[in-house]
Design a protein around this nucleic acid. Sequence first.
DNA 1: CTGTTAGCGCCTTCAA
DNA 2: TTGAAGGCGCTAACAG
Lengths: 348, 348
Amino acid sequence: MSEHKVTIQEIADMAGVSKSTVSRYLNQGYISEEKAARIREVIRATGYKANFFAKRLKMKESKLVGVVLPRMDSVTVGKLLTGIGRIFEPRGYQGLLLSSQLSVDKELANIRNLAQQGVDGIIVDSVGITERHVQLARSLDVPIVFTGQQHADVHWLKLDDYAAGRLMGAYLRQMGHAHAVFLGVSERDKAVGGDRKRGFLDAFQEGRTGEALVDFVETGFDFLSAYGCGPALEQHMAGGATVVVCATDNIALGVLRYFHELRVRVPEDVSVTGFGGYDVSAVVYPALTTVQFDYDLVGMKTAQYLLDVLSGTDEPVGELPLHLIERESVRRLGSDEAAPVESFHALA
Amino acid sequence: MSEHKVTIQEIADMAGVSKSTVSRYLNQGYISEEKAARIREVIRATGYKANFFAKRLKMKESKLVGVVLPRMDSVTVGKLLTGIGRIFEPRGYQGLLLSSQLSVDKELANIRNLAQQGVDGIIVDSVGITERHVQLARSLDVPIVFTGQQHADVHWLKLDDYAAGRLMGAYLRQMGHAHAVFLGVSERDKAVGGDRKRGFLDAFQEGRTGEALVDFVETGFDFLSAYGCGPALEQHMAGGATVVVCATDNIALGVLRYFHELRVRVPEDVSVTGFGGYDVSAVVYPALTTVQFDYDLVGMKTAQYLLDVLSGTDEPVGELPLHLIERESVRRLGSDEAAPVESFHALA
DNA sequence: CTGTTAGCGCCTTCAA
DNA sequence: TTGAAGGCGCTAACAG
C-alpha cells in the first residue's frame, strides 16, 4: 500500500551512478548510452517520478496556471474551461481552479491566493474589473489575463458584447420591429448589462426614418427572476412593444415560460430573443433566435494569450466570431416584402 | 513590476531575528510579543508570502486535491464542483482539475498524473470503474474516492441510481401506467445505463395483478441523439406505451422537442419523465416530472469522505436523498380514483 | 523563548 | 561524460 516514495538518490544508488547523472538523464542528456540504459531500467522497475515540489523549488516555472471563475455551475463557465484545457493540457500545464461566488472581494482574494501558490499565470473570468484589480495585477509579478470583462490597464480578451448587441439590433430592425423591450441586467455588469444593451440600442435605432422605441426592464440572471418580470413585460407589450430582447438565453427561457403560462404565443403575439446560444436554446420551443457565443473558443484564445505573455510574445489576438442564429422565436413584421436579411454571420 | 521574491531569511534579517523565529511566528507560536510585533511589521511592509513549493517540500501534505472529471461542460459536473469546493475551500485545500473527455484511458492517466504531482488525495467522477482502476488505486499511496460509479474494491460515494429508478417506477405504476418505453443509455454505463433502468423495471413491475410492459430504446446523452429516437418512440406508443421514461432530463428535453414538432401533446397524448432535476427542466413546458439529484450535496459528501480517509476516520457516509418532483409531464391514467400518491420524498 | 543545525529532493555549476 | 558540492526556501529538532 504505502510504497516508500523513491527519490533520485535511491535510483542513483541502484543504478550505480550519481544523482547528478540521473538528473541529467531526466532532463538534458549528456550521458553514455550504457548508463542511460541502466537508469532507464531502474526507473521503470521502481516507477520513479520526480518530486513535484522539489523540482518546482529549483526551477522557475511551476507549470501551474490559476483559473478564477465567477462560479462553477454555469454552462458558459464549463465551455470556457473546456477551451482553456484544450490549450493547456497538451503543453503540460495544470489548472488550479478557484470560484469567486460572484463576489469581487473573493475574486481579488483568489487572485492573491493563486499568486502566492506560485502559479506561472492566472486567468480570471471576472465579474467586473475594478481599480483594485488593476493595482493588484500591477503589484503581482505573475501575469494575469482577464476575460468576461475588460479594462484598459490589464490584459484582457473577451467577446465583443457591444458588437453582439448591434448584431441583434440590426437584425430586429430589418425584421421590421420598431418597438422593443430590453430585458437586461444591472449596469454594474459592464459587459452584459452595459455594452450588450448599448450595442442593441445603437443598431436598433440606426438609419431609421421614423423613431424606434426601446423600453427597459431589469432582471437577474436566473430563470425565476426573468419569469418574475412577466407582468412588466406585458405592460410594455400593451404599450406597443413587439419584441422582448433578453440579455441572455436563460433570461429568455424564463420569459418563454411566462408567456406560455399566459397563452401568449411566441412569435405570433410577441417575439423573444436571447444572447449566448446555449445548447438548450435550440431544443425548447419555439427554438430561440439568439447571438451565439463560442465560449470554448474564448477559453482557447484566452489561454493562448496567457501563454503568449508568458513567453514574451505579447501580441494582440484576433477577433472572436459572433453569429446570429435565426430560429423560431422572431416574427417578421410589416406587410411589405422587407429586404432580405443581410449576412449576420460576419462580425459586426 | 518584478518584485524580488522575498524569502524568510530576508524578513528575518530585517526584523533582526533568525529565520526559525520567523517560521515559528508563521506557524505554531512560541515567540515573545515583542519580536512578533517586529516580524509582523516587516511582513506587512514587504508583503511576504511563504514559498509554496519550499513549504510543501518539507511538509508531508500539499493541501492540494486532484479532481478528475469526465468533462467540464456539464450541469451536473458544475454542481458537483460547487459542492466539492464548499468543503475544501474553508479547509485550505485547493483543487487541481483534469478532464478525462469521457475516456477511460485518459481518466487513468489523469489519476496517475495527479498522484505524481503530489496531491494529498483524488476525487474521480468516473465514467466506469475498471479493474485497472482498482489496480492503480491499490498501487498508488494517495487515497482516491470515486463518485458517479461504484466498485466494491475502492472508496466510492454516489447517489443510488437503482433507488432513483425504483422511485420513478413506483410513481408511474401508481399513476396508472402499465406500459412504458424506457429511453436509456448504454449498459456500459453501469450507473445510468444499468442501475437506473433496473430500478425502474423492478418497481414498475412490482406488486401488480396484471403484467406490465417495458420496451427499451437506447440513445446517447445529448439532445440530438434523444431527438433522433423519436420515430422509435412513436412505434412503441402505437404499441400501447403511455409513458416515455428518459434516463436523464436532457434526453427528456430532446424527446419533448420531437413530440412538439409532431403535435403530440404531453402529457395528454403521452407522458414523459426524466432523471436529474436540472434547473431548466422546471422552466420548459410541460415542466418535467423527474427524480431530483442533489449533485451539490454529492460533491460535499464526496469531498468530506476524502477528508475522512485522509484523517483515518474512514467511516461510512450517510445516504444521499432522492426526491421525485411531480410537475406537468405525467398524466394520471385510469378512471377509478387511484390511491393517493405516497410520499416519494423519502428515500426509496 | 530563541538561534543553530540539518536536511526535504532536485538541479546545476564546477572540476575532474 | 561524470561526480562532488552547493543551494532553492522552508520547517523541525536540538541545545541553549
